[in-house]
Amino acid sequence: KSPLTGYVRFMNERREQLRAKRPEVPFPEITRMLGNEWSKLPPEEKQRYLDEADRDKERYMKELEQY
């Protein structure tokens, strides 16, 4: 499975939280809201997602080498 970027990891995590709080909001609007939230997120909060993405990318590269 391909590695996910930090942005995609953030979107996946927050999308479920936002949909639970506001189920009436259409999917494209949720994506737009989360995109704005990501762009305003402080670098230190973004870093968690970026670090997870880096670890996932390393895992993926190792799997490719073994293939």
Rank of each mutant, 00 (worst) to 15 (best):
F27H: 14
A20T: 03
R15P: 02
R22M: 11
K46F: 00
E44R: 06
I30A: 10
L4K: 13
I30F: 05
E45M: 08
T5H: 09
D54V: 12
R9W: 01
Y60F: 09
F27C: 15
E24I: 04
R59C: 07
F27V: 15
R9V: 10
K57Y: 07
R59F: 09
K57R: 12
K21F: 03
R32D: 07
V25N: 00
P43F: 08
P26L: 00
R22P: 05
P26E: 10
M61G: 14
T31Y: 06
M11T: 10
R32S: 08
P28K: 15
F10W: 12
P23Y: 00
E45H: 00
P42G: 06
R9F: 06
M11I: 10
E16F: 00
Q47F: 10
P28T: 15
T5V: 06
Y49I: 02
P42T: 07
R55N: 12
V8C: 07
R9T: 03
P3G: 05
I30Y: 03
K21R: 12
R55C: 10
P3H: 13
P42N: 04
Q47L: 11
P28W: 10
F10H: 02
Y7D: 07
I30H: 03
I30C: 04
K62H: 05
T31G: 06
E24L: 09
E44G: 08
P26V: 00
L50V: 14
Y60I: 09
D56G: 08
R19D: 01
Q66D: 14
E16S: 07
Q47A: 13
Y60W: 09
Y49F: 08
L18W: 05
F10L: 01
Y7A: 06
E44S: 07
P28G: 14
R15V: 15
L18T: 02
K21L: 14
A53F: 00
G6L: 00
P28N: 14
T5Q: 12
D51G: 08
R9G: 03
R55S: 11
T31I: 06
N12A: 12
E65R: 08
L64S: 14
Q66P: 11
L50T: 14
A53C: 06
E52K: 00
L64I: 12
P3T: 10
L50E: 15
E44K: 10
A20W: 04
Q17S: 09
F10K: 04
E58I: 06
K46Q: 04
I30D: 05
I30Q: 08
R14E: 04
V8W: 07
S2A: 09
E45T: 07
I30L: 12
Q66S: 10
K62R: 07
K21G: 09
E16C: 02
F27P: 15
N12P: 00
A20M: 09
E29R: 01
F10Q: 05
Q47V: 05
R14I: 02
Y49M: 04
E58P: 10
P42D: 07
R32Y: 00
N12I: 11
R9P: 04
K62P: 11
R59S: 13
V8A: 14
E29L: 02
R15E: 10
P23S: 07
E58A: 11
N12K: 12
K1Y: 05
L41G: 01
K21I: 08
A53V: 04
P43D: 13
L64M: 12
E63C: 07
E13W: 00
F27E: 15
R48Q: 09
L50Q: 15
D56Y: 00
L64R: 14
Y60L: 11
I30G: 06
D54C: 09
E29W: 00
P42F: 00
K1G: 02
R19V: 13
P43H: 01
E45V: 01
V25W: 01
R22F: 14
K62Y: 06
T31R: 07
D54F: 05
A20D: 09
I30N: 03
Y60N: 13
L18H: 02
R14L: 02
L4Y: 10
Q66F: 03
K62E: 11
P43S: 04
P42V: 00
E58W: 03
R55E: 13
P23W: 00
N12E: 11
E63R: 08
K21D: 14
E58H: 07
E24R: 04
E63A: 07
K1D: 01
M61P: 13
R15H: 03
R32M: 06
D56F: 01
R9L: 12
V25T: 10
E44W: 03
L18P: 00
T31Q: 14
V8D: 15
R15L: 13
E29H: 15
A53E: 14
S2I: 08
K62F: 07
G35D: 15
R19P: 03
L64G: 15
D56A: 04
L64P: 14
P28D: 15
K57Q: 11
E13L: 06
Q66G: 13
L41K: 04
E58N: 08
Q17K: 10
E24S: 07
L41Q: 01
